[in-house]
């Protein structure tokens, strides 16, 4: 029979993986998804406690976490859109204006993409009402 511990450990694992993603990835969308992953870990914790105490308090709390996550998603997406418009990039490293005055900005050098993997272009939304061009389609995944 499974006990409380194994569910808590699963929650901790998800939480920490989300943490690693949040700290190491530079794409703002991936960072945001990592934060949501951390919330999932916490939700598993709550539900496990709820299950093993035999009442619904934990479940109701998870519902509130869900609503807060939805708000967060709305605001974060809006912010990502305007940040993208300002710098034309999703790279969070473009925003480091709060550093100490005389510090050099942490510039990332352009890298030569190694051939070992194919760079996947993003999917693009075709114009509504028109048939998308055939060769563009081919380049998409």
């Amino acid at each position: 029979m499974l006990d409380l511990k194994i569910y808590l450990i699963l929650g901790a694992i998800l939480f920490c993986i989300g943490l690693i993603g949040f700290v190491s990835r530079r794409n703002m969308i991936t960072m945001f998804l990592s934060a949501e992953l951390m919330l999932q870990g916490v939700a598993i914790n709550f539900l496990a406690f709820s299950r093993f105490r035999g009442n619904l308090q934990g479940q109701s709390f998870v519902l509130f976490i869900l609503s807060v996550a939805a708000c967060e998603a709305a605001i974060a997406l809006a912010l990502i859109v305007i940040l993208y418009r300002a710098k034309n990039s999703l790279d969070v490293s473009k925003w480091q204006d709060l550093r100490e005055e005389d510090l050099e900005p942490n510039e990332d050098q352009e890298i030569l993409l190694v051939d070992s993997y194919q760079v996947q272009p993003m999917p693009t939304l075709p114009v509504a009402g028109h048939r998308p061009a055939q060769e563009e389609d081919a380049s998409h995944v």
């Binding site: 190491s24 530079r26 991936t30 990039s89 790279d91 490293s93 352009e110 993003m122 693009t124 939304l125």
Partner: peptide, 16 residues
């Protein structure tokens, strides 16, 4: 799709 990032960004190919 909205931000329409055609090419892979440096940000995606390098972790901090």
């Amino acid at each position: 799709m909205l931000v329409n990032q055609h090419n892979a960004d440096l940000a995606d190919s390098e972790s901090r």
